[in-house]
Amino acid sequence: MTQFNSFHLLYLVDAAKWTILLSLIAFAGGAVLGMALALSRLSQWRALRWLAIGYIQIVQGTPLLILLFLAYFGLGILGAKLEPVVAAGLALTLYTGAFLGEIWRGCIQSVPRTQWEASDCLGLDRLQQYVWVILPQATRIAIPPTVGFMVQVVKNTSLASIIGFIELARAGQIVNNSTFQPFLVFVCVGAIYFALCYPLSVTSRYLERKLHVAR
């Protein structure tokens, strides 16, 4: 048994890189998927709408843990043995996309109908309406709930430890197993999570203020 020392701390900080990587994968993949789902939900094409609704309902109704199991063990049995980081990234992307899709659909719909009508009367087609009129306004509305959800995702990456992926939370467990100083270790782990999440909230507030002024 060793005392908690600077090597342990470095180990934790190093593991936090994986937490960051997983979060970035989840944001990037989830944003693309979420945008596709939000637009599908609002599509004039009924089949697309139902497809998106079905996906969102199923994924939102499934614990992230189960998604992780499915992506790692499930696909493994089907012959697609994924690296833990890939499986975790996939599960988090599917999960994040479902939630961002619903959040963003709500934001798009909260842009007044009259903005659609006015841009229609000026002759803009649907794509132009989205790009130039609707999405810029929806973005402003979307920032607080999106960042709020992103903070959740950062913390939820800790679930990836369950499939053997060593990220921040798992690293904390490992350090604790050798030092038996749980209070100290997990306070450190918690502090690193906070250091990751707090800048997000600050950025959110900054963006909100900036976009509010520039409108």
Binding site: E117, A118, D120, C121, L122, G123, Q128, V133, Q137
Partner: peptide
């Protein structure tokens, strides 16, 4: 749309764009 213009009771300007961009938007896009 290119032949008939319409103005509404509630103005419906685009709040995120300057006055000039409100006007040039359709000129450049359409």
């Amino acid at each position: 749309r290119s032949d008939v213009g319409m103005v509404f009771q509630s103005y419906n300007l685009f709040p995120h764009l300057t006055v000039e961009r409100n006007i040039t938007l359709a000129l450049t896009l359409v």
